[in-house]
Design a protein around this nucleic acid. Structure first.
Lengths: 123, 123
DNA sequence: ATAGATACATTGCATAACTATGTATTATGT
DNA sequence: ACATAATACATAGTTATGCAATGTATCTAT
């Protein structure tokens, strides 16, 4: 009985660590992912959550995305425009700026170096 | 004159964004990197800073590494042992635990999925 | 002797993901 | 008709972690 309890505790500790780790990995990668998705086409916030999930299996909360989009806007990497709908709530579409495009290029360079380094040491 | 000043400001804003972004990318990747380096052999703290720099070009501050190693220790992913030197300050060597090895495997699976997703959307 | 490298460690700040919560509209099921 | 879920925006507070700054102590080279 004691053993079962202990096993459960160790297992959940590890899952907890992995859960927190995945959350930390998102810091930084998420802005890179969102900018890359916006490179293809203009999307609105709620749609972006679905797009990120479909393209990367990463599930993000609304409380994560909206502040992120506001930061990107503040940094002049994206702009936004309200678009009225025939029915329903208006949508705020996000558009990459030229500075945003330049920034993605710099991010990509760093990411590729990092990715290859990690591939070397983790194989 | 004004133009020069403006250009400089825009450039530095972007560099500042990239600098902060790189720092964010480290959150999460760094623990994965350190664990992977320790998989090969036991290292002490100061040596790890050099190893990370050599293998990934990532420069980390001591104020980053030592708290990180303490967290990994607290999570039972590594243990440490003091090793006296013939001359000089004793070194604290870090050793992967079995739980640490298991955790790396789980991290690796997540990382590879993420890496491939990002490769798809960023190319 | 003084500077710099080696080797450990902690404190406080900034950043960003996440949970919880809030508002408002539309669609769906019973 | 009414409740529930989905759509669509947003913010406040909590938590985790990188980093600059600072501190202690030893060894080496000039």
């Amino acid at each position: 009985m004691h053993n079962y309890v202990l096993c459960y505790r160790f297992a959940s500790m590890n899952e907890e660590f992995i859960r927190k780790w995945k959350s930390q990995v998102k810091k930084g990668t998420l802005s890179f992912i969102v900018l890359n998705i916006l490179k293809g086409k203009e999307l609105y916030g709620y749609e972006l959550i679905e797009a990120v999930k479909n393209k990367t299996s990463i599930e993000i909360a609304e409380g994560t995305l909206y502040p992120l989009l506001n930061r990107l806007k503040k940094e002049n990497l994206v702009t936004s425009k309200w678009v009225e709908q025939e029915s329903g709530i208006p949508r705020k579409y996000y558009v990459l700026t030229q500075e945003g495009i330049n920034t993605i290029d710099q991010m990509k360079k760093y990411w590729e170096t990092l990715e290859q380094s990690i591939k070397r040491i983790s194989s």
